[in-house]
């Protein structure tokens, strides 16, 4: 028994026949679409490494059944940069050394993009820290992560102002 599934992944519409309803969005991306940038740290919603944006919202892709998200618009770490031009969040992570081993990084960056879009944290470091607390980093890169999110917030704000 297989079910048709349509997803827009990083701007490209993709259709497949899903032969197994157990497949999570995370495993779909990693094992079936070769989009391995999204990481699996726990598979149980406890670490945030698998964070992606679904219809603009950051979620844990390990606890999301692919079949239930038929029609969704998905953004993963692979779809964030424009060609060689890094997204401001990505650039800020490099600048502030917001990672060490890099394994939690795709999830951190997707979470940061989601956080900035949500618009709840602004430039308040404490709100940023709380808003990024769904992403564990065993290397302990939190200071750089917080600095990077704050800087990216400002960069994106400036861009938005210039556009307006």
């Amino acid at each position: 028994m297989s079910s048709p599934l349509t997803l827009t992944v990083n701007g490209v519409q993709r259709r497949f026949d899903l032969d197994d309803p157990r497949v999570t969005l995370l495993d779909l991306l990693r094992e079936r679409l070769d989009l391995t940038g999204t990481k699996k740290g726990c598979d149980r919603g406890q670490c945030g490494a698998c964070t992606i944006l679904v219809d603009g919202q950051r979620i844990n892709s390990c606890l999301a059944l692919a079949i239930s998200h038929d029609g969704a618009d998905i953004l993963t770490i692979e779809g964030v940069a424009h060609g060689d031009a890094l997204h401001p969040v990505q650039a800020a992570f490099i600048q502030h050394d917001g990672f060490q081993c890099g394994f939690c990084t795709p999830g951190q960056i997707m979470s940061a993009i989601g956080l900035i879009r949500e618009g709840q944290a602004g430039d308040d470091p404490e709100r940023v820290r709380e808003g990024m607390s769904g992403n564990l980093c065993r290397c302990g890169a939190y200071a750089g992560i917080t600095e990077a999110v704050l800087e990216a917030h400002h960069t994106l704000n400036r861009k938005a102002e210039q556009a307006a």
Binding site: I77, L86, F93, I94, F103, T105
Partner: peptide, 14 residues
């Protein structure tokens, strides 16, 4: 850095 922030850094399971 670029590899790590774009998801392109290859870890074993990738």
């Amino acid at each position: 850095g670029v590899l790590k922030v774009t998801g392109a850094a290859p870890y074993a399971a990738d």
